[in-house]
Design a protein around this nucleic acid. Structure first.
Lengths: 124, 124
DNA sequence: GGCCTGTATTGACGTTCATTGATGCAAGCT
DNA sequence: AGCTTGCATCAATGAACGTCAATACAGGCC
């Protein structure tokens, strides 16, 4: 069910000594921007939060997500697809229902990317 | 020079036990989405990285940022404005030049927001 | 004063995005 | 088989976004 997903933050990743470590080159910036863009929408952020709240290994059925919004079902499905394509979540169909979970480690890696200080030390 | 800026992540903040702590309500999600949206563009991400690379207390002159891109000066100015409005950076004019720096603490708070595990523990 | 440099703002244009109703597909049930 | 439910995809529309040229503003220098 998963499609082509980004893998910028993985072990095998292209990227990421940290935002503050050194100026990003264009490719790194483009890949990472897709992830942040995926989080840059209130609906997707809430979806992400609802899924992540289940903790590691936790799953949420789409049927629990959709009614939490005043939006049509296709819209929610669309947002979930974007989160998937950003590599933030993954999903699996089990019988009638589809379950989503947070891709393990992504949030930690993203957080570390923002937090990690540059090697040098203080100011220039 | 600064205008109205977001303050969702501050001490006085509305928000943020963490993305995974509990489902975000609409207001929290809307405020945080603006911040992620600001980072969700390759140009702004590179700008952010260039500024942040100067370390805490470090500053960058716009005249150093603009030539790093194949974009017009107004476009860079526009992106810097969005970063400012998201509360990620601030700036000051000194003589002819304008200097930008990262709003202290924002990156750490954002990172913590993503990383912080929920109080409960593991899965549901 | 006038001129020049650096930066922000404005207005316009093309592209991308969020949203919807309609439709399609998968799986369970009778 | 047919019906029903849950979710994804498609096609269309309006809004938001990124970009630029032109312009305006601020400060230094003559």
């Amino acid at each position: 069910m998963s499609k082509q997903e980004l893998e910028v933050l993985g072990q095998d990743a292209v990227c990421c000594p940290g935002l503050s470590a050194a100026p990003l080159d264009e490719d790194q910036a483009a890949d990472l921007a897709k992830i942040f863009k995926a989080l840059g929408d209130p609906v997707r952020l809430r979806l992400m939060s609802m899924i992540a709240s289940r903790g590691q290994g936790g799953e949420v059925c789409v049927c629990e997500l959709t009614p939490a919004f005043d939006l049509s079902q296709p819209t929610i499905s669309h947002h979930l697809k974007l989160l998937r394509q950003a590599g933030l979540v993954d999903c699996e169909r089990r019988g009638t229902w589809v379950y989503y979970w947070v891709q393990p480690g992504v949030l930690d890696k993203l957080g570390a990317f923002l937090t990690t200080a540059r090697p040098g030390g203080a100011a220039a």
